[in-house]
Computed example of a mutant assay.
Amino acid sequence: MSRCARGFSLVELLLALAIGLVLILGGSQVVISARATHASQQAAMLLQDDARFVLGKIIQDVRQAGMFGCLATAYIDNAPAAFERPVNWSAAGSSRSLTLVTADSGGEGGKPDWTVLSDCTGTAQAYAGSSPPPAPGQIRFALRQLTYTFEAGQLKVSTPAAPARTVLVDNVQAFDVSFGVAAKPGATRVVRYDASPADESLIRSVRIQMTLRDPAGRVQDQVYSVVAALRNRLG
């Protein structure tokens, strides 16, 4: 047989197979890496969406906490004790809760916890639930008490009318709250943040830090932090 008619030798065939295998493994690794990156990005987006929904709702409620109409609480007849503590934070074991008495400007559905009728000049009356129709010159302010509770890896919300806690988001690794406090009652500037302020009347803002975890482990724990000011205490 002529030398020119010979096929590949065994060494050449093994070398070609080895090079092909390396190329296939390299391409597969690129595809696997791209899919893992896409999965981690999707997981991070889902966590970010959950955080945006929950923190956006809490921020809105914090900003309107203590807004009981156009007159101070001292001028509201029949004001409940909850009006004196529009922002309250408690911790028991691994459970933590943030309670806000806030304006129900969004009309979240259902009957309000309280309603204040005020003429915005010198008289105001608080009613449990809904109030009578406002008289000429009166304005009606609907109020709700919302309690956000972190327990067993979930953030939940409840109200006095619906004490059964509704889950807002799962896979919560941590939920921490601290309060920006002023130096004295008439001041508006925050001088420090305190997890448990002795004088709640000095609270001017609320800082929330929440950590979410992807149950599939596709992305590292994501930490989100926001600060919201109590508008009625800023003058």
Rank of each mutant, 00 (worst) to 15 (best):
V22S: 12
L155C: 00
R233C: 06
L15T: 15
Q41N: 10
A51W: 04
Y224I: 07
Q220E: 09
L47G: 08
D50P: 05
A43N: 06
P112L: 03
G66C: 06
I76F: 01
S33E: 05
L212V: 07
D199T: 14
T166R: 09
D61S: 13
A142T: 15
S105N: 14
A128F: 07
Y75R: 11
A228H: 06
V191K: 09
F53C: 05
Y127I: 05
V219E: 08
V101C: 01
S9V: 10
P160E: 02
K57D: 12
A51G: 07
T37V: 09
Q209R: 11
P197G: 08
R189T: 13
A36H: 14
A36P: 04
P215M: 10
D170N: 12
L100M: 11
R213L: 13
T73A: 12
A152W: 03
A44C: 05
S118C: 04
A65S: 15
I59P: 00
T102K: 06
S205I: 14
A142G: 09
V226H: 08
T149P: 03
F141W: 15
A142R: 15
V191A: 09
F53A: 11
R52W: 09
G110C: 05
S196T: 08
A72M: 10
A82D: 14
I59G: 08
L212F: 04
C120N: 01
S94Q: 13
L230Y: 09
V87L: 10
T121K: 10
L15C: 12
L100Q: 04
M1T: 15
V87H: 06
D104P: 05
T99D: 05
D214C: 04
Y75F: 14
A124K: 02
A183C: 02
V22Y: 04
L10V: 14
V227T: 15
I139Y: 11
C120D: 01
A79F: 04
A229N: 12
A183P: 00
C70S: 05
R204I: 07
R207P: 01
